[in-house]
Design a protein around this nucleic acid. Structure first.
Lengths: 341, 341
DNA sequence: TTTTAGCACTCAAAGATGGAGAGTGCTAAC
DNA sequence: GTTAGCACTCTCCATCTTTGAGTGCTAAAA
């Protein structure tokens, strides 16, 4: 069976109509609403072909047709025309993301909020991962007997603090030298390379404080472990409830539960190819729970390095043409924002 | 009509049964399951009385009885026997809350998680508010041209950081004097009293940096405004979905939406009396959305001052006897934990 | 006087029935 | 290759029936 122009138009019409209404689409509707200059009977014949090709399916004999997963796939790959982002939306995005933001975390949060509000789907934003980033600044501040605050600043604007225990035997004056030491040896170093470097230092400079330094090192590593630092931000979690396909509580439930499992989300968001906008439809997603969902992802970079992912989760019946462009535009603006930090 | 012992027993039985099953309770069930030594007919007569008194009601003529709001009220006030917290739960709580925690925020988070997991309801924890607390330590750390990290430590273990802009004209050496100045004048001061005090300082010491100090002050106030600092932590948000009374999506929806409105939650959690465990049933809660829910709250203190609230949200048909004791025990342990920080 | 057995009555929930409507596939004519 | 026409299918909805749990009332028993 060959996919001629008319079949393409009909498939396109079916998908657009189904996306808009969530109701199975009949031959008559297509013939009337999308004037193709042919009768419903003709459309009917074509639809039978499209069904045979696997692009659409019937919920039951006397119902209209519904796009199948490969139908959506074909649409996204070959038929879809990206809808340009509305001017108002562009302006909103730029004004929110490019103004007066000083910390990565806030930038990411706003991005999530924007994405969900502009699309009415659920936004997932994976914040930058710093494995390849390096330390700009580190400081140990004594706050009371036995306690200090460790402040860590990375070269990409991420700031982190953590309260650590300090042996009482360490005097206030020593903190300055610790800080100096840490900065001297760690500044500019990629996080991955820290430990070996610090170890050398320990033995050469401060053998008597070895234990404390080891503890400190542990704390630093902990603070910057991907678990701590690479967070997933959600926006519009409850937007799934808007979708008629999720009217029953049990369907929504497992999805909402999935959204609380940050580890799984990270996995879901980890890209299998490094750039551009990727659309995963239905069971193309690894997780069973997402079999009725599509996920649009895009990665963002800094200095050419992949640092994070942006995702948009909706029903398979989602407005791909609009969603894809917004994800794209938002990713680019986010990049800009991060590089401005 | 008088409330004799038998009526009390029957009401108690009805409520316990309804809490356990969520089905309207019939006279036969009561007579059989809770052996009161009387027949169902007698129970029936008593139930008619209880209904007249307003403690129970019938969904429809031929259904069993369901506790009314005042029924629950009477139960909580007069009938309920607190179920002691299981030993395993006690141990879990103590080991999680009293070990190796250094920051308030983490303590609060764990409390929320525990509360929801132990009860299967939704936990709300309002973190400490510091209006009356004072500053232990403040520091301004330069990190690059035009930027610095402001680190703020309060006397109750709360630590906060924020990236601020710094005029390029301020040299690295000046930071130390700023930090010294801030500490000198603000340390030990209750947050409420900061501004006037700092203002005096500005004019006497550093008239030329007035603008920057004002900006800095603004940043500090911002960081410590109740909006920023007094956060609501949720645990087990999706536990409501377990309840059969929330099977329809529209009922759950408004409740889940409520849980995303942190401002409303703060209001809901603000106590109208200062201590002890308070149970608010159904429409005793201010919010329409919560008319089918009960909220158990308890306040926690530090040095005698009220600093936060702990809440547990479930259906009106909630296991009060168990929930109340867990809230109580957890509040006490949280107090302990905070004072140990 | 209180309790109980018995019975008629009520009502919701669950099936059963029967159009109405939307949509299909097939056939025969254009 | 396209279209009109028609029989057929299946869901959705409203209506009706049955079933079962539970009640209230009454009259007899304790």
């Amino acid at each position: 069976m060959k996919m001629d122009e008319r079949k393409r138009m009909i498939l396109n019409a079916i998908i657009l109509d189904y996306i808009a209404t969530a109701d199975p689409v009949g031959s008559r509707t297509i013939a009337r609403k999308y004037d193709l200059g042919v009768s419903s009977a003709t459309v009917r014949n074509e639809m039978a072909d499209l069904e045979e090709m696997g692009f659409i399916e019937q919920p039951h004999t006397s119902a209209g047709r519904v796009p199948s997963q490969s139908g959506y796939r074909y649409y996204v790959d070959c038929l879809m025309q990206k809808e340009p982002v509305a001017n108002a939306d562009r302006n909103l995005i730029r004004s929110e993301l490019l103004n007066r933001i000083r910390e990565t975390e806030i930038l990411i949060q706003i991005t999530g909020k924007l994405l969900s509000e502009l699309t009415n789907y659920t936004a997932l934003v994976l914040s930058p991962f710093f494995g390849k980033n390096s330390l700009k600044y580190i400081q140990l501040l004594p706050i009371e007997n036995g306690k200090a605050v460790l402040v860590i600043v990375l070269d990409n604007g991420h700031v982190e603090h953590r309260v650590v225990d300090v042996p009482e035997s360490i005097k206030e004056e020593e903190f300055a030298s610790f800080t100096a030491l840490l900065n001297e040896h760690l500044r500019g170093l990629a996080l991955e390379l820290w430990r070996p470097s610090l170890m050398k230092t320990i033995f050469s400079h401060l053998a008597d404080r070895k234990k404390f330094l080891e503890y400190l090192m542990q704390q630093i590593e902990d603070s910057l472990s991907s678990d701590q630092v690479q967070k997933v931000f959600l926006g519009g979690t409850l937007n799934i409830l808007n979708q008629p396909e999720f009217k029953q509580i049990d369907k929504v439930r497992s999805l909402l539960e999935l959204l609380e499992e940050k580890d799984i989300l990270k996995e879901v968001l980890s890209p299998d190819q490094e750039n551009g906008v990727v659309v995963k439809i239905g069971s193309e997603n690894r997780h069973e729970v997402m079999k009725d969902c599509s996920l649009i992802t895009a990665t963002y970079h800094m200095n050419g390095k992949l640092i994070g992912t942006l995702g948009l989760l909706g029903p398979t019946r989602m407005e791909y043409s609009k969603a894809v462009s917004i994800v794209e535009y938002l990713t680019n603006t986010l990049k800009e924002g991060i590089n401005k930090l």
